[in-house]
Amino acid sequence: MVSGLLALCMLSCDGQSSRDTLKVLDLNGFLDLQNFFAHTGHDIPLLSAHRGGKLDGYPENSIAAFENVLKHTHAFFEVDPRLTKDSVIVLMHDKTLERTTTGSGKVSDHTLAELKRLRLKDAQGNVTEYQIPTLKEALDWSLGKTVLNLDKKDVPLSLTVKKLKEWQMEGHVMLTIHSAEEAKFYLDHSQKFMFSAFVRNKEEYEDYAKLQIPWDHMIAYVGPLDKPETKELYALLNGKGVMCMVSAAPTYDKEASEELRRTKYQQVIENGADILESDRPIEVSRALHQKVKSAGSSPKKVFFKEVVN
Rank of each mutant, 00 (worst) to 15 (best):
L8Y: 11
S12P: 13
K71F: 12
T111L: 06
E98Y: 13
E114P: 01
K85I: 06
D86Q: 05
P81T: 03
S3M: 14
S48R: 05
E137A: 11
I282Q: 00
S142N: 09
S87W: 09
S158E: 15
A235D: 07
V88Q: 07
S257K: 08
A7I: 15
I63V: 06
F37N: 01
H74P: 07
C244M: 04
V24D: 00
S104E: 11
F304S: 09
A65H: 00
H50Q: 08
R286S: 06
M174W: 04
D20S: 14
L288S: 03
K145C: 08
D279Y: 00
N149Y: 10
T73E: 07
E229C: 12
A64P: 02
T84S: 05
K165F: 10
K300H: 08
H289D: 11
V268E: 07
E229A: 09
R99G: 08
V127D: 04
E181A: 15
C9K: 13
L91H: 11
L120R: 02
F195L: 01
T111Y: 07
V173F: 02
G125I: 00
L5G: 09
E258P: 12
L159E: 08
T84P: 01
V107K: 03
M245Q: 12
W215G: 06
E181N: 10
L8R: 11
K300F: 14
K85M: 06
H110G: 01
K163L: 14
K54E: 10
C13Q: 05
M10E: 14
D32P: 01
H172C: 03
